[in-house]
Design a protein around this nucleic acid. Sequence first.
DNA 1: CTGAAAGCGCTAACAC
DNA 2: GTGTTAGCGCTTTCAG
Lengths: 343, 343
Amino acid sequence: MKKKRISIVDIANSLQISKTTISFILNGKAKEKRISDDMVAKVNQFIHETGYKPSALARSLRTGRSKIIGFLIEDISHPFFSSIARLIEDEATKNGYKIIYASTDNDVLKTREIITMMRNRQVDGYIITPPLGIEAEITELIGEGIPVVVFDRYLPGVKTDYVIVDNFHGTYNATTHLVDQGYRDVVFVTFRSLQMQMRDRESGYSEAMKERKLKPVVLELEYNHSRLPIMEALTDLLPLQTDMDAVLFATNRIGVCGLKVIEHLGKNMKDVAIASFDDDIVYNFHKPSVTAVAQPIEDIANNVISLMINKLKKRHQSADFQTVILDTALKIRDSTRAKKQHN
Amino acid sequence: MKKKRISIVDIANSLQISKTTISFILNGKAKEKRISDDMVAKVNQFIHETGYKPSALARSLRTGRSKIIGFLIEDISHPFFSSIARLIEDEATKNGYKIIYASTDNDVLKTREIITMMRNRQVDGYIITPPLGIEAEITELIGEGIPVVVFDRYLPGVKTDYVIVDNFHGTYNATTHLVDQGYRDVVFVTFRSLQMQMRDRESGYSEAMKERKLKPVVLELEYNHSRLPIMEALTDLLPLQTDMDAVLFATNRIGVCGLKVIEHLGKNMKDVAIASFDDDIVYNFHKPSVTAVAQPIEDIANNVISLMINKLKKRHQSADFQTVILDTALKIRDSTRAKKQHN
DNA sequence: CTGAAAGCGCTAACAC
DNA sequence: GTGTTAGCGCTTTCAG
């Protein structure tokens, strides 16, 4: 039952012509190679009738280009990344590319393996949120002229194209806002991480606090991509912050867990103001709605993919890299209303 | 700078042996082919030193297997699908497979194109939420012995492996629950769709209503994957349902939009009970929290991927197909408290 | 204008 | 035990 896939040779035989000619026609080089219109018509007709499609695999082997983009992100199930996945996919498809994704969990070993696998598949370009420690591999890719676009975070010392947001001013503004609303003991809750985006968020918070002569208090959780461990950690740590009158979460993953925990902890937390980096639909629906630093997801995706497509198009890699830094937007909601004054 | 990729021939030359031997060692056929341990050691050492990795591309061309699974879903940015994407990815990776995803938007033409592209890339198996009208293509794939696992919905007349949930009883139970709580004018809000999962949800609702001698009222929206159009449609339609005392949303996408709209519409909607198919984290956080029919995401993913891996492993496709129907769970929350009796 | 042929890197039947 | 060799299906240089 398995009808053999029809190949370019079959066409050549059936039509009694050379496969070279067919290949030229297939690749739109008909007039460049000055092939007769009759021939072109005949071949096209045959292709149409038989439903012949060239094997992308064989083509890739020959040309060294796979028309596949590797998308390496922390976790595809995270809405931030899956939203970007969708936007990137659409644009890639328009340009004839497909996407292979892989979740890294910010694990260097895993990421290294993924890159190796993708290189074996001749992936044409890499869009990646790199974990720390992967600098060498990234540099190597770039050194070999393979297009790489890094986003979400910055890799100090690695020259490549970047699309990031201004994390520092994101938390800086959020913190300033909290202080302006009358809060003094603002606690910053984050993952223990050396990733630049996390460090910048922390710096933004700390700077803002110091400028206002307030003492920064940072709570660090172990990174974990599922909710339960985060909630447990928060349940342990938050009650210890007896003076806290406001909390700023470094990511929406932590923040959403934090909301639940604060709700469970009950009355002591009633008047704690809440803000979070990374907007989330939950923040909209929570009562009170939660103030958040929103990342411009579409802008990020558009910049990432257009940078990538551009690099893919030009055959010779230019040595100048672009860094795109996008602004965040502080969405002020009910959770950071001006502090009630107690006597 | 571009150091040429080292190939199996290079090794053969360097070591003055045949590439066959290397290939055998590479593919773990060393003892089967009774290759001397010395040889094996020498080759492994060389491979290790040079960091040689076989080209997956060339291998695929030769073997006809790409070790890639195609994942065709409605929309990767939808949490339901991206969660499954993650679970499937992990299991696929363990078995040496990678995933290429593509969003279909339930569009037949688009899906057809995607399948064609993937076939040209020799994708080994397809995991797919098929749009209506794609039956022929699916049947063709199966006819050629290519593993296909369909999930989320059922394709009448197509014999293949399925992983679906019991949509009918999901809405049936939710509706019954609403009626038991004292609601009479339960309105069902859905997308206009002939997809089986949507029809089953509607049937479950209608049946439950009829059994209780109540009149089913179904509101159909045009399918759309972004929120704004859905909210606009709801803003137009919901106020017309003057008798409505409860609403059951057919998907969480509609439901989440519905919550916002109901909130905006304000006081008239105050006492309307709300339930939704597809649980969503927002439902947890909304005040009141929203009753939902939860799909067992992990179960779905596990069944899908293990079905796929099994089919991929056995060389000859057996003709018997499995259908896995999973139960949903009704999460009863505050939005469906017993109806207050007015005089 | 069209064709012959080399080769991308690998696998596996067949030889020795 | 190990080597020879014929492809997998396509692109592209070089001839004519």
